[in-house]
């Protein structure tokens, strides 16, 4: 089951650019939480701070604390351990181009040294079923390269890959922004299915998407979190003027 996330006084920098300022936030377990805001507002940086991907950039810096479940990810564990608990789906589908569909999905386990073949088969099937891709690919799992799938299928395969390591939290950084409407709708259905089992944080540029899939929504602007509330409240009766301007389209 998923776990909640407690963010306290989170600040992040790229070089001298202060991209996140004093973020305070509680993300509930086993729900979908959407983060919206204009481009460059810091929402992507924020999710990347939740699995310490932010620090893969050598000029990046973070202060503050993030508790996922019972551990402080910046104090109690290494990035590698955190990322095994916190899965991530990226903006553009990023399959491993040299691997088959099967190997792509199993990669998180295989590359960490897990080799129980029978169990891997089960996990791959279950992950692909969970990501609603199984029926489309079950016949050529090991024959087809992951990169030969369509964009939408690739993204669902990437979700399956993230699910295969059985994460507690699933971060999605604009997972549908590079996809066509049909694929987008499939991904959204999927998020809807998955959120009962995982804590999902989804960054989106698309407010309808936030409204459709998330129970909670946070609005980011210029590196600060302006408002965080239930999705219904954010979209019908926001308490901050800037949020209202943004969701009604009266914005830059």
């Amino acid at each position: 089951m998923g776990v909640g996330i407690e963010v306290t006084n989170l600040n992040a920098w790229y070089g001298t650019n202060h991209t996140l300022q004093d973020i305070q936030l509680h993300i509930p377990a086993n729900h979908a939480t959407a983060l919206i805001g204009p481009s460059g507002c810091g929402k992507s940086t924020f999710v990347r701070c939740l699995n310490r991907m932010h620090e893969t950039n050598p000029i990046a810096r973070v202060t503050g604390s993030v508790r996922i479940g019972d551990i402080d990810i910046y104090q109690d564990a290494s990035p590698v351990e955190i990322r095994r608990r916190v899965g991530m789906v990226f903006q553009r589908p990023n399959p491993f181009p040299t691997m088959s569909i099967y190997d792509n999905v199993a990669s998180g386990l295989k590359l960490n040294g897990y080799s129980n073949k029978k169990h891997l088969d089960e996990i791959v099937e279950r992950s692909l079923r969970n990501s609603a891709l199984w029926d489309e690919v079950k016949d050529d799992l090991k024959k087809k390269s992951g990169a030969s799938l369509s964009g939408g299928q690739q993204q669902r395969m990437c979700i399956a890959r993230a699910l295969a390591v059985d994460p507690e939290v699933l971060l999605m950084d604009e997972p549908a922004s590079a996809l066509d409407p049909v694929s987008t709708s499939k991904i959204e259905d999927l998020i809807f299915e998955l959120k009962s089992q995982y804590t999902i944080v989804i960054v989106t540029h698309n407010m309808q998407q936030a409204a459709r899939v998330a129970e909670k929504t946070g609005f980011f602007l210029n590196g600060r979190m302006v408002e965080f509330d239930s999705t219904h409240k954010i979209f019908t009766n926001p308490s901050d003027k800037r949020t209202e301007d943004y969701i009604t389209g009266r914005f830059g």
């Binding site: 990035p79 590698v80 990023n94 399959p95 491993f96 181009p97 590359l111």
Partner: peptide
């Protein structure tokens, strides 16, 4: 090799050395 491929491996919690050898180098092989 696009950075997105490296990120995919790191995002799965794969150790860096493993990701370099089994993902980046293999992709560029």
């Amino acid at each position: 090799v696009p950075n997105s491929v490296r990120e995919a491996a790191l995002g799965l919690g794969v150790p860096n050395w493993r990701s370099v050898l089994s993902i980046t180098l293999k992709t560029a092989s």
